[in-house]
Design a protein around this nucleic acid. Structure first.
Length: 431
DNA sequence: CCTGATGCGTC
DNA sequence: GTCGGAC
DNA sequence: GTCCGACGACGCATCAGG
């Protein structure tokens, strides 16, 4: 597939604002895409090259991209930086500079999607001495073989800012139309995405196996699940109204969210954006091994730094010292952590994401061995706004950010994203 | 060996 | 993480 | 209500270059 064909779609999509029309264009694009590269086309369309848990980054943002533009176009530093401050978009700068480029562009081979993708992979893999030079060289080589419009989108992909108005949810809509036969099948695709966190893989399975393949996705220990998010409101009263008058209100701890997978003695830790951060927290791995009493589990907790002498919770910034590659064991001493578990998604073969919250929490209580470092989030069940306000003040007093107030009705399943107002944040700054 | 520029991931 | 625009 | 993109503070890693 020619990259220019992809670019034509991007141009059309960028020119419109309505999501229905965008989706229709994506549908046409996906229909025309060979199944073997549909995953790549999907990643590129949302400005990525891999799913997040792969942990490989391009290491190129605006500044390095502009250096590549300079090399490929032969324009002066001054002209490029002027264009950049005027346009504010590396893609547009590249397009403009290549239109004026000094080198001859005759007899250029046409770029394919695979050409672009494999060059981007090379950029991602370059590391060590001379890596920056290498990244810039590869990128400028790519730009030198591009038409201006192609360059525009190569640069936008590299910097991760496609500005098309298309992200994962719009891709899912398009996939359900192309491979499911209509929007009614959207939920099937969304579930596959939620359980795999890999939209390119969903597209590939859909293209190769059809919707039957997409239906087969299931929870796999070691593969991150897309996290459930919370909406926000500024008073307990509004929140309770939204939640049909009753709720469970939990402390919102000031730390880092972790999705923890356990299979016998193996443990994986995923961040909120689904990066694998297991290696950063060997102490947490040990805590999970000894305090989670289940052969298989996928649980969520907040990891909070504590004062090593008093055990008091410390603010988020202190935990940031733990987000490092070196001196990990020294920092474990200096910034030990507590875990506050708040959800159970999967335990011993049972998918709990479709169960109501209180059932999940009950499961949590049955498998978490509580001690001074490993706990279950502090919570009350209430239907009284004043009681919730009082609990909120206690949370602040204890060093928390506020509360996450959650639905406890039969509809209170684990639902990825922030849809449905099942979880609602109450924080001090909104007051 | 140190420092600044750059990129990235957390909230 | 917050905010606001577009539908 | 949903989705998307623009934005900020902070700390760490990497690399280039003095």
């Amino acid at each position: 597939m020619l990259f220019s064909e992809l670019v034509e779609f991007y141009e059309k999509i960028e020119a419109i604002t309505g999501r229905i029309e965008m989706t229709n264009l994506l549908v046409e694009l996906l229909r025309r895409t060979p199944p073997e590269i549909i995953d790549k086309v999907v990643y590129l369309t949302i400005g990525e090259i891999y799913p997040p848990f792969i942990g490989l980054e391009l290491g190129v943002a605006d500044k390095l991209a502009l250096r590549a533009v300079k090399l490929a176009s032969g324009m002066s530093e001054k002209e490029i930086s002027q264009a950049y401050s005027k346009l504010g978009d590396v893609g547009l700068v590249g397009e403009k500079m290549l239109m004026k480029r000094t080198q001859a562009t005759l007899f250029m081979e046409q770029l394919t999607v695979e050409d672009v993708y494999s060059a981007l992979e090379k950029i991602a893999r370059a590391s060590g001495e001379g890596a920056m030079e290498m990244k810039v060289q590869i990128l400028s080589g790519l730009l030198a073989s591009s038409q201006p419009k192609e360059a525009k989108y190569i640069l936008r992909i590299v910097t991760g800012k496609m500005r098309l108005g298309v992200a994962d949810m719009t891709i899912l809509d398009a996939l359900s139309i192309v491979f499911g036969g209509g929007k009614e099948t959207r939920e099937i695709f969304e579930r596959a995405y939620n359980l795999s966190s890999d939209i390119g893989y969903v597209a590939k399975i859909a293209a190769l196996e059809g919707i039957e393949g997409v239906k087969k996705f299931k929870i796999t220990i070691g593969k991150p699940i897309r996290p459930m998010l919370a909406e926000r409101l500024s008073s307990a009263e509004e929140i309770l109204q939204k939640l049909d008058g009753k709720c469970i209100a939990e402390y919102k701890y000031d730390g880092e969210r972790m999705q923890i997978h356990k299979k016998n003695n193996d443990v994986w830790i995923f961040s909120r954006r689904l990066e694998n951060i297991t290696w950063q927290y060997p102490d947490v791995v040990e805590m999970v091994r000894t305090n989670i009493v289940a052969d298989e589990a996928i649980l969520e907790c907040e990891c909070v730094a504590v004062n090593p002498d008093t055990g008091d919770m410390l603010p988020f910034q202190e935990l940031m010292h733990r987000k490092r590659k070196y001196d990990i064991h020294k920092m474990i001493e200096q910034y030990p952590v507590n875990l506050y578990f708040f959800d159970a998604l999967y335990v011993n073969g049972e998918d709990l994401t479709v169960k109501p919250l209180l059932e999940r929490r009950k499961m949590l209580e049955s498998i978490v061995k509580i001690d001074d470092k490993v706990k279950i989030s502090k919570a009350i069940i209430s239907s009284d706004p004043r009681e919730v306000e009082k609990f909120f003040n206690e949370a602040i007093e204890a060093g928390c950010e506020g509360l996450v107030v959650k639905s406890i009705g039969p509809e209170s399943i684990y639902r990825a994203g922030a849809r449905g107002w099942l979880w609602i944040k109450l924080k001090r700054s909104y007051k």
